[in-house]
Each structure stands twice: as C-alpha cells, then as structure tokens.
Computed example of a mutant assay.
Amino acid sequence: MSSNRLPALVSPSLCAALAPTGVLRAAINLGNPILAHRADDGAGAGGAGGVSVDLAGALARVLGVPLALVVFDTAAQSVEAVVTEQADFGFFAIDPLRGQQIAFTAPYVLIEGYYLVRDDAPIVANGQVDVAGVQVVVGKGSAYDLYLTRTLQQAQLLRAASSQTVVDTFLASGAQVAAGVRQQLESDAARVGGVRLLDQRFMVIEQALGLPKSRGAEAAAFLARFVEDAKASALVAAALERHHIKGASVAPAA
C-alpha cells in the first residue's frame, strides 16, 4: 500500500515501539467470524485467515518485520493479550472500558449487533427486550456484552463462554433472547432452525485496531494513520470482498 499518510521509512524507535521483539505479534479473535476464521486448509498464517489477518500482514510489510499471529477464541482473551503485552496490537470493537488501557484507532469496519428469539416468542421489537424477567445471552467479554451491560436496565444478561456458543447457550438455558453479530446469528439460525432475528439492529459495532497505551503516542498515531490509509487505498474494501463478507461496511474516513 502506498500513501502520503505513511512515512517512506519507519524510524527504528517507532519500529521498536510497535514490534519490540523484532516480530509484529497480532492478536486475532476467532470469535468474530466477519473478521477472522480458522484456516484449516493451511492457507492462513498461524492457523487463521480473514480480514484482520490480511490487515496484520499489510502492517507488518509497512514496518518491514515478520508477522506472528496470536490466535484466540474470544474477544476478552484477545484484549487481555494486548493489555498484558503478550501481543503488540489487535483488532477490537471500540469500547470505553477497553479504552482505559488500549489506544484505539478510528474504526475501519462497521458491523451490526442484532437480537435473536424463538419463532414463537412474543418479542417482535428491540424495545420489548429490556423488560424485567427477560434473559439475554451474550458472549462473555464481547463488544455487545460490554454495551448491553451499560445500557440494559431491567433485562438480565447471561454470559456464554464465547460468541460462537451464544445461540446454543440460549437454547439450552431457556433464555428469551440471544444477542450478537448479525452474521453469526444468521448462520446459527440456519443451523438450528426455529429462531428468528428481530428486524432492527440494537447497535453498530465499530471495529478498530488497538495497541497498549504504554507503547506511546507516536506508535498510536502511526497505527491510526495506517488505518486511514487502509481505508482510503481500498485495502479494507478489497479484504471484505476477497473473504466474501456481507453485512459489514468500510468505516468512513476519520
């Protein structure tokens, strides 16, 4: 990728801040199927592929260092790896709680959060979810878990082990609602049958890159410029198309 936003040469101090071990370690969250998946066919580096893996590779090429993927099944694990500096950066939904320790870029992709209910459920609109006695299943530590923890006043949250197990936990527990990324819920609905998505999103999930705040302002600013370049140069759009991602859009320029 080429752009006036990025320097032609990355200074040694900047490279050391972004990849202090000499290898760029990217935290990859397999819990978000829009952005990453397990590459069982061996096509992906480090056992994973997808939009976030493509962007991680592009960043490593800009820095001129090798890439290592640190792969996790949940967002919470991925966040913890970056906060504890077991990884140099990661791909996360922007959230104020995470932002206490992670410096986020502007979003590069926008994803929708939806509710799912049983076909015979009386709930037909989002406004009927936040009611006393309603239980909502979420993936523990996910963006929508954090968001609904702040916003739901009366409904009770039940936390599944991961985003991939939300619908199965919802069915097994007898809860009234499952919450998650639209594409994951649609895939699960086709798999289990007898359920439906409500026809309105409850949130827009802003996906960004983030690194530990301890890496400094220069590193955070460079990562932010990289994201703007990736959007402007159509790198993000091309990755979404290459991986046949529907229902997610490139975020506007910051």
Rank of each mutant, 00 (worst) to 15 (best):
S173I: 08
L69R: 08
G113T: 03
R159V: 09
V83S: 10
V124A: 14
A251G: 03
A220H: 10
P252K: 01
K231S: 06
Q164V: 12
A121W: 10
G90N: 03
A76M: 14
S2N: 13
A232P: 04
R182M: 14
V124N: 10
L211Y: 02
I34W: 08
R242F: 00
N4S: 14
A19K: 02
G210Q: 05
I111T: 15
G174N: 05
A175F: 09
F92N: 06
A251L: 02
E85N: 11
V109K: 00
T149E: 12
F104G: 01
S187D: 14
K140G: 12
V134D: 04
A230T: 04
A208L: 02
A143H: 13
A248W: 00
S13Y: 03
L211Q: 00
Y108A: 03
G127E: 15
R242Q: 11
A45Q: 14
A189H: 09
K231Q: 12
G46R: 09
V204A: 13
K140M: 11
V124S: 13
A26Y: 08
H243F: 06
R191F: 06
L67D: 05
V192G: 00
D168I: 00
S163D: 15
V192S: 04
R98Y: 09
G194V: 03
P122M: 04
L146V: 05
A132C: 05
Q200L: 13
V137Q: 08
V166E: 10
Q154K: 14
H243V: 00
V166M: 03
A132F: 07
V192D: 01
L148V: 10
G49T: 06
R98P: 07
A26G: 09
V177C: 05
D120Q: 14
A172Q: 13
G22V: 01
D130Q: 01
Q207S: 08
M1V: 14
R150E: 14
A45I: 12
T74H: 07
P122F: 08
D119W: 03
R61T: 09
Y108R: 02
I94S: 08
R150H: 11
D73G: 15
E85L: 05
G90A: 03
Y114P: 01
R5D: 15
D188A: 14
A238V: 08
I111Q: 15
L158M: 13
A155L: 06
I34L: 13
A132N: 07
R25H: 05
D54S: 05
T165R: 10
A251V: 06
L211P: 02
G64P: 00
A75P: 11
V204N: 09
L211I: 07
G99M: 08
R38P: 01
A76C: 12
V117W: 03
P212M: 05
G216W: 03
R159D: 08
Q77R: 12
L197I: 04
A155K: 03
A81R: 10
L63F: 02
T74N: 09
G210A: 05
Y147A: 10
V137D: 09
A237P: 04
A106E: 12
V177N: 10
L223Q: 07
L171T: 04
R118L: 12
R242S: 02
F89E: 02
